[in-house]
Amino acid sequence: MMRIDLAGWTREATQGDPRAFFALFDEADRLGFDGVWFSEFRLPTADWPYPSPLLLAAALLARTERLRVGTSVLVLPLHQPLLLADEVAQLAFQSGGRIDIGVGRGTEPATLAALNIDAAETRARFERHCIVLQAQAAHVPLYVAGSTPETLGFAIERDLPLLLSLEPPETTQLGHVADILQGRPSTLLRRSSLARYVCIGADAASVQSQLDGLWAQLQARRAFFAAKRGVPPEQVPRIEPERMLHEQFIHGDPAQCHAQILALRARSGIDALRCVFNANGLLDNTQALAGMTLFANEVLPALREPA
């Protein structure tokens, strides 16, 4: 049975009335999704209202019955690991064990500078803090997000499942994992989690209409983040819709979405999927909830059947 979670509520997608925001996940709980994941953006320069995913998790866990809440990710170099382990253990206890902790190294220069953290030290701090967290909160599911052979090798050495990325797609990461494992048997990928944009509709026309409205917005977002790295607009690669649909999307009517998820599972060996129904904030919550509802009614029941 596959685990089907939600993701995509990050940065500007978290803005708005908190009551309406929380109600969205009350409905996700009712619809039968397994969990939802939130990111950590400390000392944000924009109006992003939830810099602490643990505080957000505490609020949601207190009002839902079965939905798990995960962090994707806690930026470990920013934290004192023993205190963080205390907070994680408390959340696990008061929620009946419904917390998942994804961790990463983080490289946001402004945050590191504000906290007087040397960027050259973040890898060592990440690994040291992760070892402490794994030991002190051993009963809490712990995941590692990373794209480099060093981070992936560390996760494999510690037998920690992975949170594989949506952008860029996970192909390179899986290649690194294969190189590191060199054919050795491992359950790590089966316990890991993939992410995909999900664009679902009752028929082909409604799906195509949704997709047609996304490409320009996704290109603009790609250019925005490239500019933050100093890349001029003319050097930003253009989106290739067919390739992106293959590598980053689940799309189509319910039957097509179900078939694509099963194929992805067979191809990757991964049993957990983080579904992004809001295109990481490019679609509003009303549109996202419509997709979530159709998916929950028509696709989730089939995915709950034993493999």
Rank of each mutant, 00 (worst) to 15 (best):
S192R: 12
Y197F: 14
S209W: 03
D159N: 15
Y197N: 08
P141C: 05
E150W: 10
A135H: 15
A226W: 00
H129D: 14
G213L: 10
I239Y: 01
Q210K: 09
A137N: 01
A220V: 05
P185K: 12
V177R: 01
P233W: 03
T187V: 12
A220N: 04
S192P: 05
A223I: 00
L174E: 04
K228C: 03
I200V: 13
L160T: 11
L115I: 06
D203Q: 07
E167R: 08
P233A: 14
L162V: 02
A135P: 10
V236F: 02
E121W: 00
G153F: 02
A120M: 10
E240Y: 09
P141A: 07
L163R: 04
A145Y: 00
Q217N: 01
R222Y: 00
L174W: 05
G183R: 09
A135I: 03
S209A: 14
P149E: 03
D212I: 04
A120L: 11
S192T: 08
N116S: 09
T148R: 11
A119Q: 11
E121S: 15
L188A: 02
L164P: 10
D118Q: 08
R196F: 13
P168R: 03
A120E: 13
L142F: 13
R221F: 04
N116T: 12
E170K: 07
G146H: 02
P169R: 00
L214R: 05
V140D: 07
P149V: 04
Q217A: 00
Q173R: 04
V132I: 06
V198W: 05
A205V: 14
C199A: 13
L160F: 01
A204Y: 07
S206W: 04
L218D: 02
A124M: 10
G201H: 08
T187K: 11
L133Y: 13
D159Y: 04
L164V: 01
D118F: 04
R184L: 09
L162P: 09
P232D: 07
R184D: 06
Q208S: 14
P233H: 10
K228F: 01
R190G: 15
H176A: 05
L174K: 09
L142V: 12
S206K: 04
Q235S: 02
V144Q: 07
G183M: 04
Q219Y: 04
G230K: 07
T172R: 07
A138E: 15
S206D: 12
A119Y: 09
G201M: 03
G183T: 08
Q136Y: 15
A114I: 08
A124T: 14
R125V: 00
H176K: 02
A114Y: 06
I200D: 06
Q208L: 12
S206F: 05
R238S: 13
L218C: 00
R184E: 15
A195I: 04
E240R: 00
Y143T: 00
E121F: 02
D179N: 11
V231A: 02
I156Y: 12
S209T: 12
A114K: 08
V132E: 02
T148V: 09
S186H: 15
A119V: 15
T187M: 12
R221T: 01
E150D: 07
P169S: 11
R123S: 10
A124G: 08
A220D: 08
S193K: 13
